[in-house]
Design a binder for these strands. Sequence first.
DNA 1: GCCGTTTTCGGCCCGACTGTTTTCAGTCG
Length: 568
Amino acid sequence: MKNELVIEQLTQIADLLEIIGESVYKIRAYRKAVDSLQQTAEDIEVIVQEKRVKELPGIGDAIGEKIKEIVVNGKTTYLDKLTQEIPVEVTSLMKVEGIGGKTAGRLYKELGIKSITGLEEAIENGLLAKLSGFTEKKIAKITRALTFVKSERRPLFKMIPIALNLKKFLEGIDLIQSVEIGGSIRRRKSTIRDIDLHAIGKEKDFEQIMDIFSQMDDVEDIVVKGPLKTTVKLMTGINVDLRVLEEHSNGSGLIHSTGSRNHTVKLRTIADRNNLLLNEYGLFDGEGKTLIASETEEEVYKAMGMSYIPPDIREDRGEIELAQKNSLPDLINLEDIKADFHVHTNWSDGKSVIHEMADAAAERNYEYIIITDHFGKNPIYKPMNEEKLTKQRKAIEQIAQSSSVEILQGVECDILKDGSLSISNKLMKDLDFVIASIHSIFDMPEEEMTSRIITAMDNEFVHGIGHPTGRQLGKRGGYSINFSKIIEKCIESKTFLEINAYPNRLDVDDNVVFDFKNKIEFFIGTDSHQHQQLKNMGYGLNIARRAWCEKKNILNTLTSKELLRKLD
DNA sequence: GCCGTTTTCGGCCCGACTGTTTTCAGTCG
């Protein structure tokens, strides 16, 4: 897939336009196009071939042509032209916090600085200090920013506890009435860059609140500090934003802090079109004098003529237009989940025994559970063989007699290098559910990897593909596969894709589910290796909800009878 | 450069913080 290449080049164009001082609207258009592509799981080559590029929001004639050029030639002449004026490396300066296009442009034009190293040298040899406007204070700020590694996106499950600790700390301050976690954590994105906090207090206390916040133990640096908004960098390198408001602005402030940026921009645009003004303080009449709504999010959305939009789907992907028509999807909930489809026990590499898993499922009010221990030859997973499989079946039958949840027997088998499986057809035939997953040889070219998985799906006894991309958040990206082709095969072979809810996997990504949920169905598996991990179903649900899934899109909402009938 | 509940042309979200700015540009979210 050439999606990454297109995104990279359009971003470079936007950066370069910023450096040469082009119209902010033109720059915004390129950034919007990048956003749009980042939300697409489909192969851009396929989109170009089918002449659907301009159907993507924010992409018109000009950018559409450039995308086509990049897909066909690997580059666009427009970028070539821009780089004749400004070398593309100069855009790397904009990665430094506080340096934008204007500053990067001056650094290059006036001092010939092209890179971070060049900038460091110019600071050291005093060249930067000779530039007008680069006072000691400003240089000190840049120097500090240079010591920080650009903060990376981290898995949601690692950020939630950090955010909760901060929330707890702030809630312990008398001057603060309440604290909410906003931003991408509240929207439940799979990976998170910054932590956004929204606090309520009295205006007279704002400065003191910010003093306490910026003096917390694990603050490494204060990035910006004002009475209304403060950003600190923690020693872990994570940026934390705190926005403080008075209680009457709670709803509008929370909408602002939660984002996404594109969602709030769209809301404000609509408000403006209706002669209203929306900001973090509330929804006002056009003059900004009369307050219309602000106390709760529900009130603000309602006053905007919309139904309440859950945080998970605030991404400007059409949810606002649907909310205006009161026809948002009826998002799937935890109560709709009747089973966990991917569970390991001590029959392979799991830590819990079957009945512990069944009990944990019962506690979650599931109707059934599918035990899917490893089957194959890879000793890492202590896999089962034919003999163990037969014994396990007897064990399951026995435990099921005293269990309040139904226990189905499945396996997770390996997709071998050539697409064949680590289990025979004869054995699969008697199993309720077969997940086939890739557990070895990850670095295959896209085409080979895609046909490897497609070969596995061709096996009539395979029901689902486990953790389809193999990504491990914060460790490795997924292997290269072509989703457009995989989905086609899913439809043809009636195979389902997993939403793997193991917190460091979250695989597939919500973009994939969003794009293809009306073509195929998905199942959520926690891939639990001990009974406490069944609670990770929530992470799988986050993905499904972000992808606008309703009950009908997710197999876990079926009863066991309905499921088995469907698999037949 | 994109886009259309008034518009195929004329708009394009809104506000906080920083620096040295005596009224604003740059950057960020």
